[in-house]
Amino acid sequence: MVTVSINGQKVEVEKGSTVLEAAKKIGIKIPTFCHDERLKPHGSCRICVVEVNGGANLPTACVTPVYEGMEVETESEDVVTARKEILDLLLADHPLECLTCEKAGECVLQDLCYQYGVEETSYDGARNHYEIDQSNDFYYSDQNKCIKCGKCVMVCDELQETHAIGFAERGFETHIATPLERGLSESTCVSCGNCVSVCPVDALGSKKKTKFRYWEVNKVRTTCSYCGVGCQMDLLVKDNKVVEVQPADGVNDRMLCAKGKFAFDFLSHPDRLKMPLIRKDGRLQESTWEEAYDTIVGKINSIKAENGPGAFAGLTSARCSTEDNYMMQKFMRAAIGTNSVDHCARL
């Protein structure tokens, strides 16, 4: 173990830990753009610079290992000056469209400019002008807003293992692209949206079907309802409608697939069943719960009287909750009297 001091506060961490990890342990927040604990640290965005033992060089907290006796300052004058300069440089090629930007309220660049009081860039130079790639059905790539943190590329390479996107060009022209610039729809992209979920700005954004601001939504943690992996995710809810899904920590390690991330439209689809339906004159007609219950109970009683409980069968559901399944099999076994309960585990 190694003891270091961060902003005058002592912390003991394992040898090999980074300054960022040590700071996190005692609740000191160091800002980051490119860091993600699931990825190999690469220290490219430099916003996490800190001062060590009063030295002139400001190392990046995310890749600098701690050593015994290290003294770290995370918000010293030099550090703040450096961070402001980094933000200033980023804004030199980033449109200030925060009023209408979809990411407003959840944009790390916006938050840090607010924190350090950077209103606009002091540089007057060339700006990139990229066409927005709208070819994917679920998200867009707006390279005019990209800050080149590279998290999207690394998530696609190191975690999703799809290798659909990479860095193209060099220097000022550096941007995120698909092979041969042929666009997302022509790439190997599987629309998992895991790049979108880690983008700190609005360079990769979900195509919203409902307009919302991130400060307007409630987040509700739940389990994905598609396959059996059981991915954890947050439903973002505005006005009783799920408007976005974000991956959460769990068995899925903050990853999702195209279905989990983007296929929630069915919840608010107009074809959802809203009333009980009873077949009358050969067609299904809207009815009431009372009439539906009476019809079902009447039929159960008459069939049971005539044929016994062996004439009933029920299919529970691999799609419904554990509690729903328990109640259905109990209904079949205890209230009707048959063990003919099965479901599509075999299909």
């Binding site: 389990t223 309802s225 059981g230 068995v251 069915f266 919840l267 069943l273 419904c320 909750s321």
Partner: peptide, 26 residues
């Protein structure tokens, strides 16, 4: 003969059990 309208996963409390036997909340 009778169709009953049920709630979807986002409209109810409950649990799903995943492939590694993990009982998780909805």
């Amino acid at each position: 003969d009778v169709v009953l309208p049920a709630t979807a996963y986002a409209e109810k409390d409950g649990t799903f059990v995943n492939t590694e036997r993990r009982v998780q909340r909805i």
